[in-house]
Each structure stands twice: as C-alpha cells, then as structure tokens.
Amino acid sequence: MSANAFVQHLRIAGQYARIGVIRKSQFRVEFWSQVVMDCCWYASHVAVFEVLYAHVDDIAGWNREQFRVLLGFLFVSDAFMMVWLGQMWRFWRDLKDGKLDSFRVRPGATLFLYGFQQFSVEGCVNMAVAMTYLAYGIGRACEHVTLGLVLVTLIAVAVSWWVRTILVTFYGLVDLWLLGSDAGQFVNEAIHAVADRPADVFGARVRTFLLYILPVGALTQVPAGMVLGRYTPLGAVVAVGWLGMLGVGMFAAWNRGFRRYESAMG
C-alpha cells in the first residue's frame, strides 16, 4: 500500500468516525445500553477468573496479577472491535443480501471500506473502561512503571488490535467460503473460547499454532507477554513482524475469497 493510499484510508476512517458521531447525537438510550452491555461482558470474565483464582495461585504459569493483564488485552481488543469493526458482525448477512456491491466499485480496499464503516462512539467509552482495567492490571503486575513499559504497552495494544483485525478477516473468509451459512457464529464462539484463556494451557504444538498460525491466542498472550517481559526484545520484534506478515497474507486471502461473492438478486 502506497503512502498516498495509506493517508487516503486514514482520512476515510476520519470520515467514518465523523459519521459515527453525527449518528450518535440522534439516539441516547442505545448508547448507554451498549456501554453497559459490554461492561457486563467484562464483568462476567473478571468474575470467572476471580472465582478460579480463589482456589489456586497459578494457572499454566500465569498468576492472578499477570492474568489481569491478559484479560486487559482481551477487553482492549474487544473494544477495538466495538469501536471500528461492528459492521463485521453483520458480514454474513450482508453477504447474503449482496450489500457489498457498492464497496466493490469504490477505489479503496473493499474490506476496509466495508468493515470499518460502523464507527461506534459507545465503543470509545468501552475502550476507556478496558484501558483503565488494563492499566490497573499492569500497575499491579509490574513493580516499576517506566517510560519503556508505557511504550511497550502502547505497542502491545496496537498488536492486540492488529490481531483482532486479522481474526475478523479470517472470520469473514470463513463466511465467504461457507457462503450463505451462519457458520461465522460458531467460528466466533471458538475464537472467543480460546482467546479468553492463556494459550499456555495447550500443549506446545497447539500453542504455537494458536499464537502464530491462526493467531487466536495471540490476541491476548502475545501483547501480555510483551508487557510482562516474557519475550526478549528480539523475540518480540520477530513475533510482531510475523504477525504483521500474517495479517497481510490474510487480507490477500480475503480478496481472493471474494471471487465467491455472488451478490444478490437485484
């Protein structure tokens, strides 16, 4: 992607955000109910793990403090989905209804133009909540908060967002292949089931697969590992570089998969 195209897409994102804000000034109950909904989701996760850690100190090498960091990244990446990628929940239906037609003829990445169109302001509130929880978790897990740590945290947050985008793309790819089915729901369930727990609970092979091939585990464990110093600097660079390439590959696969798009009867 050229620099020009990159700037173009940033500006489009800006317009999407503007549209999201304009829209939101129009209904209000919805706003808070979505914020509360996501907080319920956070709460149920926190509750489960507080219950489990009431009985043990360590799960697969993660203690309670470290686990909070992991959950923090789960929430942050989920909030990213809420803020930017909300439209992807409707992907399978929009595929069936042929609603991607107009994005296909626009001079921009179809996946981007379609996927990022629903900017959600309530998601921003959730992002703030999630970030706060993450900051709290990191504060408890790390003894000294240094500038370096803050920097690594920011990079790690970006990684969790990036991995979320890869997964959403993968999820769209499954929908394209199983066109017309609602298999996405199941894939989503599987992704979530794996992402909320450290990939370390799996055996070595599965773990590598989940971290670096179908990076469901990378959503939380890679960024948390970076912040908690579980990677050497070189290891972190390699992991991030690999995940970057994986994303590019996934987007290319999505574009190819789009051949299966049949539109709908007009």
């Binding site: 489990l52 009985h55 043990v56 100190d57 360590d58 799960i59 697969a60 199983l178 017309g180 089915s181 609602d182 298999a183 729901q185 199941f186 894939v187 369930e189 599987a190 089931a193 794996v194 727990r197 370390d200 609970v201 799996f202």
Partner: peptide
C-alpha cells in the same frame, strides 16, 4: 443452510469446555 446448521447445531458450546478442561488441568497441576 447445511454447513451452518451442522456447525451451529452440533458444535455449538463445544469449544469452551475443551479449553476449560485444559484450564482445570493446569489448576490441579499448580
């Protein structure tokens, strides 16, 4: 929709217990 039906009806709710089994195993180990 056949594929969706099979996936949703038969596999729904299976991934989580599989992962939780491993979590419990890790707990008992620790």
């Amino acid at each position: 929709f056949r594929a969706g039906f099979v996936l949703n009806a038969l596999l729904r709710g299976v991934p989580r217990p599989v992962v939780m089994t491993l979590v419990y195993l890790a707990m008992f180990r620790s």
